[in-house]
Design a protein around this nucleic acid. Structure first.
Length: 545
DNA sequence: TCTAACACTTC
DNA sequence: CGAAGTGTTAG
């Protein structure tokens, strides 16, 4: 079924990927993980290594439309879904192997933006990234056959600007540009990942890059959202007249669509306003000094060629890294990753690129001196998202019956070079990640297939706390952050951590982050599930304590 | 800039 | 029918 199409489409890419990947990365070691896989004869398919998995972005045309204008995603305290939603079609997986699919959203560059004069302009340096969180698809882990059977939807993923978010939503800073990434991780025997040899690969679709906002800046985007998002149907003007009753106001007179009006106003406005320009850093100046992603983020949208991309000024360079990685045992892989990256720019858009493990910014990190050090800690945490669970979860996307895990979020650490440098171990976060696989999480609800280790705590780590309390500390920055997770790498240097969790408390990384508000109460209404992951690192499996 | 209440929609 | 996702609007 799907495969057919997909395969056709992807062929090219695949080959590319392979080559590169293989060369650098380890050729498929994935096998270790085979637990599941082993049984399978992979005979037919070309190689079913994780590197050969093809991923096609669903509704790419729609994404492109948004991207041409400069996609904006609303972020709210309560969490807002993305629209277009992130959905992919996956092919060339080993039908019997179990995989975990997750999405993370990393900074696309190191700038803060401002919408002036009807255009996005750089307005200073980006704020330090928060520890990234990962959104694990609710069906994870599931077999290749399951994933390939239908579209894999991440529509329930929510974005928030609440650094203390207790729900497990992905935390972003407003007016910053981000790049969503899909990671496919081979599940280990326990249906988790985290083992040392966990194999995984990352796919990036440049057209899904967006700038986070608390309210739409470009009316063209507002318009596209209204026209395409079913929930915004109420704002669609009636065709012709565009007469719409303005009930909101309680008035009954027909009005020109607000959008239109708005646009006009805006435009006129913008002219006036325009000038401010960018230079402002908006105040925040927060000294970012320390943090830096590196300049080169790989992510950018970039296609140089693509005109569209340009909407976001600066962003990036075109290149992306491409690669897939497998982890080997410890952390070394990171390094590998670094090297490999090469630009792929060209391809463009559409497709995805394989990345190295390290997240984009990470990559940068890699380059940095810090990288090396930092890397170690990467870890990811997961949160269960609240929502997920419930029914909807299933529905949404695909659905699945399996049901395994509902949503989970993972957090990745971000890189804050500074700290890392110091050598402080961030373990804290690490811990989260940790071993995850094994541990999986828990969640209050036992439902999860995974292992329920601890329980739920919700919080895994709380970013928030981190931020506030320790601003500095962010966890490991470097490395972990990057890595998306999973795969492990961490070096172990030390930190193994794990964390565990207390039930109520969020996880605190070692340091404490204290406060997590949350707690259980939060919402968990539903089941949250949490996973903890560990990257491969060394053994860390959690230590639980 | 950001937030919360809102009217309307989907599911 | 109720829960939840929309952009709007006022603050």
């Amino acid at each position: 079924m799907l495969q057919e199409k997909a395969s056709a489409v992807t062929d090219e890419r695949v080959s590319r990927v392979q080559n590169s990947v293989e060369t650098d990365l380890l050729p498929h070691q994935s096998q270790l993980g085979l637990s599941t896989a082993s049984a399978i004869p992979s005979s037919n398919e070309p190689e079913q290594s994780i590197d050969n998995i093809k991923v096609i972005l669903h509704e790419r045309e729609l994404w492109k439309k948004f991207n041409e204008v400069g996609t904006e995603m609303i972020i709210t305290k309560a969490g807002r879904r993305m629209f277009p939603s992130y959905k992919v079609k996956v092919t060339r997986m080993n039908p019997k192997t179990k995989y975990i699919l997750l999405v993370d959203i990393v900074p696309a560059d190191e700038h803060r933006y401002k919408f002036c004069d009807n255009k996005w302009m750089v307005a200073g340096k980006a704020e330090p990234a928060m520890p990234g969180r990962l959104y694990v698809h609710p069906d994870s882990p599931a077999t290749g056959a399951h994933w390939m059977r239908q579209l894999v939807s991440f529509q329930k993923l929510k974005l928030t600007n609440n650094h203390l978010d207790p729900f497990g939503h992905i935390i972003l800073n407003s007016m910053h540009k981000y790049q969503p990434r899909l990671h496919i991780v081979k599940a280990d025997e326990n249906n988790a990942f985290g083992s040392k040899n966990t194999a995984y690969c990352t796919h990036v679709f440049h057209e899904t890059a967006f700038i986070s906002v608390t309210s739409y800046q470009n009316h063209k985007i507002t318009q596209l959202k209204i026209e395409n998002n079913p929930f915004a149907k109420g704002f669609r003007g009636s065709e012709e007249g565009d007469l719409r009753v303005s009930r909101l106001q309680g008035k009954e007179y027909p009005v020109i669509s607000k959008n239109m009006v708005r646009q006009r106003l805006i435009s006129s406005h913008s002219h006036l306003a325009g000038k401010l320009g960018a230079g402002v850093l908006a105040g925040h100046s927060q000294v970012l000094s320390s943090y830096q992603y590196e300049a080169g983020f790989p992510l950018s949208n970039s296609d140089p060629q693509d005109p569209m991309t340009n909407h976001f000024p600066q962003s990036r360079d075109p290149s992306l890294l491409y690669h897939c990685f497998k982890h080997r045992d410890n952390g070394r892989h990171l390094e590998l990753g670094c090297k490999r990256s090469y630009l792929e720019t060209s391809s463009t858009g559409t497709e995805e690129h394989y990345f190295r493990t390290a997240p984009s910014y990470e990559s940068s990190l890699l380059s940095h001196p810090y990288c090396a050090e930092g890397i170690t800690s990467r870890e990811a945490c997961m949160y269960g998202s609240v929502e997920t669970e419930s029914g909807s979860a299933a529905g949404d996307t695909d659905d699945l019956a399996n049901s395994p895990i509902n949503c989970n979020m993972w957090a990745t650490v971000q890189p804050y070079p500074r700290y890392s440098m110091e050598g402080i171990p961030y373990q804290p976060f690490t811990a989260h990640f940790t071993s995850a696989a094994t541990h999986t999480a828990v969640v209050p609800h036992p439902s999860t297939p995974m292992v329920p280790r601890s329980q739920a705590d919700l919080g895994v780590y709380n970013p928030a706390s981190v931020q506030r309390d320790l601003p500095v500390i962010h966890p490991s920055s470097s490395s972990s952050s990057c890595a998306p997770v999973v795969p492990g790498s961490r070096d172990r240097s030390g930190h193994p951590s794990l964390y565990h969790k207390k039930p109520e408390s969020p996880l605190r990384p070692h340091r404490d982050f204290s406060a997590y508000p949350t707690q259980g109460s939060i919402s968990i209404r539903d089941p949250l599930c949490q996973y903890q992951v560990e990257l491969s690192s060394a053994g860390t499996h959690w230590t639980d304590s």
